[in-house]
Amino acid sequence: MADVAESDFLLATRGRAEELGAWVVGAVFDARNALAFALADGTLHLAGTTGDWKPVTAHDGAILSASADMQEGWLTGGDDGKLMRTAPDGATTTLADYKGKWVDHVAAHESGLRAAAVGKALHLLGPGGPLKTLAHPSSVGGIAFDTKGKRIAASHYNGASLWFVGAKEDKPRSLEWKGSHHAIAFSPDGTHVVTAMQEPSLHGWRLTDGQHMRMSGYPGKTRSLSFTARGRWLATSGAESIVLWPFFGGGPMGKAPTELAGGDAVFCTAVACHPQHEVVAAGFGDGLVLIAEIGSGKVVPVAPPSGSPVSALSWSPNGALLAFGTEAGRAGIIDLARRP
């Protein structure tokens, strides 16, 4: 991408970027396509393609994790021990206070569920408050709801636990595999769970028959996992290209992954699959952001390298907007909607 002119990046013609001054932990669109950047200085920045961005102080300390809240607004977990909700108008509410313990991971489902991982505990909350606390053998490394919000998976040391959210008796299905697991993803149809490991490699479980899937060969740790809309591909960071594993035709077992947008000897640090099309956005260690069409391998440059790794990347649910953030605090939004 070194030979691409600045003006050829979509950011120049269809987007805007700001320097927000702190590590961007999350670029999060809520279900209504409203965007907030969650920063390590405890602030959220409510952002759009036009108008002023609005800063909101949500935490006294760093935001460690951020997600969209149930129907609208944002959910954040901080090192101040709090689980906070920020409404689309910027009003903040404390949903829970875990007394100074770090809230490492948060997630929500539109059906009316919120989840916060605090050490070994995974707290589930509903619109009215706490529902239950699920205990794990070691600290939770990542959490993910399935598409329907019926189950939640939590990764940890030596595997992952799969919980039915509505179960009367809380006993998880244990997905076992030796080692330390962190980032975790559910396939959109709910049939597979994949984790990223310390090693660095990925591990997957086919839930129908417990089949293990090992996906290895990464030069770096995978931090970001994203399935394409219909679950045919799993896009991953952690290599000098976007690594995509085929989840069709018997894969990923025995299949080589597809690699896209490689060649710059810079690690891919974040991936996000488009919510409808087989298109993946990727951020790299130098700040470069691009979009690649999986079928053709065609690459479109989005944002030029800014010198700092891309730490957050996501699509709006309607697929028209892409947002990214970097460790150094650069945050951008790009409007990809068809123009009349």
Partner: peptide, 10 residues
């Protein structure tokens, strides 16, 4: 607060 979780590498 740390929990001293010692992990073996694979």
């Amino acid at each position: 607060d740390a929990d001293e979780e010692v992990f073996e590498m694979n």
